[in-house]
């Protein structure tokens, strides 16, 4: 009986979605999207319009997202914090190939993540994606050796300072351009499709990338060690 109800509900949902699909994919742009598409390039000189929307037009939302991520990582670190005095089980060592590969690949991966978030206004991607790539470099080190010493002080300082930098850039916009996170009068807008262009956008995305990268790295480290102690207490 339960299964029949589930199948009927699914079929209804499928039919409804099939009807909705052409509406959800309109051929033209909406009013807001039209405005962004027409004025985005003159306003911000960013080659990637999505970045202009994420960091400038909807920059306040991005600040909120970064804060949510920070809060969730803090919560996880608080709940899963390291407890001393428990028996820590010895993980099996990774093989030579994995350890060497991790050492070899760490720097290129972090470099590529940095490229992603520094070029956020030129290519697809930006702070969140670049931060995730940087954190995956750290994850590779942790996979090769679970107790790889991470510079926790450096990570937490980077995280806090980039958060402060984001807010400071927003306040600078308030002071120079008239609104929070305004992209006027702080840095020159520059030429379209150059590395030093789009005003304050790449600076903010660099802060976001550093913050997300250090947060995710801390989260992965905390979770890996928490798993260990729970299993063997």
């Amino acid at each position: 009986m339960k299964q029949i109800v589930a199948v009927v509900a699914l079929a209804t949902l499928a039919i409804l979605l099939w009807q909705l699909a052409p509406i959800a994919m309109p051929s033209g742009l909406g009013v807001v999207a039209q405005h962004y598409a027409e004025h985005g390039v003159q306003d911000n000189r960013g080659a990637n319009l999505v970045t202009s929307v994420v960091v400038n037009y909807r920059g306040f939302d991005t600040l909120g997202e970064v804060t949510v991520l920070f809060l969730s990582v803090s919560g996880a670190a608080f709940v899963l914090r390291r407890r001393t005095g428990l028996e820590v089980h010895e993980p099996r060592r990774a093989s030579e190939i994995v350890r060497t590969g991790a050492r070899l690949l760490f720097a290129p991966i972090v470099l590529f993540g940095t490229y992603i978030f520094v070029h956020g206004h030129l290519t697809p991607g930006g702070g969140f994606q670049g931060g995730a790539v940087v954190a995956s470099g750290v994850l590779l080190l942790l996979l090769a050796n679970k107790d790889h010493p991470l510079p926790h002080g450096f990570l937490s300082w980077t995280e806090s300072l980039s958060g402060l930098g984001f807010v400071a850039a927003g306040l600078a916009g308030l002071w120079a351009g008239g609104s929070f996170l305004a992209n006027r009068g702080i840095l020159p807008l520059g030429t379209w499709n150059q590395l030093f262009s789009a005003g304050v956008i790449p600076v903010i995305y660099t802060f976001v990338g550093l913050k997300v990268g250090s947060e995710l790295a801390t989260l992965l480290d905390v979770m890996m060690h928490a798993a260990d102690e729970e299993v063997h207490q």
């Binding site: 099996r92 990774a94 991966i109 991607g125 590779l140 996979l143 679970k146």
Partner: peptide, 25 residues
Amino acid sequence: DVALVYGILSFLGVTSLARYADKGV
């Protein structure tokens, strides 16, 4: 760029699965 990010992250996914099966995570 998307393809390269994809390559990096899927490599990490498979490696972490392997390290999980090896009880090393």
